[in-house]
């Protein structure tokens, strides 16, 4: 279980409060108006933004003071998820060893992950030689080898076309199921939420609300969300 205990996150322009719990293995969409703090919330969980108040727990472990790389979190950013000068295999391998000194078993693990996301035979390529969808798959293969308990997505597929984005989201859902990871994804699009998220965290007016069932929220949106959804 992920627990944000009376948290206050400051992003310089506004404060976001969050007091909520997320069940292990849930798939959560974080939605809300632009600029409300969806990314701020994700960044705080990932450790890129300090908490001004409150504490953050994963199970019994207090994460509040941990640096980002030491949290049970794998994260995909809006862009820049791959290092353009490293090969596909190296980009994935970083998820196992930051210094890239992979042993045999780890190398096999990388190849297995690449195979799982459908990139057999592309391990020696550089990201620039791949399509947008393939680049996303490389990042997902790395998430797979990282094997972290939580997967945070900050709209990493925003630049892809609708069909490709749907394909990626389905793959994310499958991978989350296979690994049992808890998924939190920022989304602008309520259809994304309906597609793969069981629950929604609404971020609006300086507050991250506790999760509610997706269909329930989207079918009966509160006024602030209705204004956003149109």
């Amino acid at each position: 279980m992920l627990k944000l205990e009376r948290c206050l996150i400051s992003n310089g322009e506004f404060d976001l409060s969050a007091d909520l719990e997320i069940e292990q293995g849930q798939r959560i969409a974080v939605i809300g108006p632009s600029g409300a703090g969806k990314t701020t919330l994700i960044e705080a969980i990932a450790g890129f933004r300090p908490l001004a108040q409150g504490r953050l727990f994963w199970q019994a472990e207090d994460l509040s003071e941990k640096p980002p790389g030491r949290r049970p979190v794998a994260m995909l950013f809006q862009d820049g998820n791959l290092f353009p000068h490293l090969t596909v295999a190296q980009n994935v391998g970083l998820g196992l060893r930051p210094d890239l000194r992979l042993d045999k078993a780890q190398q096999e693990n990388v190849m297995r992950a690449l195979s799982r996301v459908g990139l057999d035979g592309l391990e020696a390529r550089k990201p620039a030689a791949l399509s947008g969808g393939q680049q996303s798959r490389v990042a997902l293969a790395r998430v797979l080898v990282q094997g972290r308990a939580m997967l945070l997505l900050d709209e990493p597929f925003a630049a892809l076309g609708p069909a490709l984005k749907a394909e990626m989201l389905d793959l994310v859902a499958e991978l989350a199921d296979e690994t049992g990871a808890t998924l939190l994804m920022v989304s602008h699009d309520p259809d994304d939420a309906r597609r793969i998220a069981g629950q929604v965290v609404l971020v609006a007016e300086g507050k991250a609300h506790p999760p509610v069932t997706t269909a329930e929220l989207l079918d009966n949106p509160p006024p602030v969300l209705r204004a956003y959804l149109g």
Partner: peptide
């Protein structure tokens, strides 16, 4: 551009220098 990605992969210090900063 790559600081946060490096951090999220726990690439502190030398790993970041060796694999990101110098090549870039």
């Amino acid at each position: 551009r790559y600081g946060r990605l490096g951090l999220s992969l726990d690439m502190g210090g030398w790993s970041f220098v060796r694999w990101v900063l110098l090549p870039r």
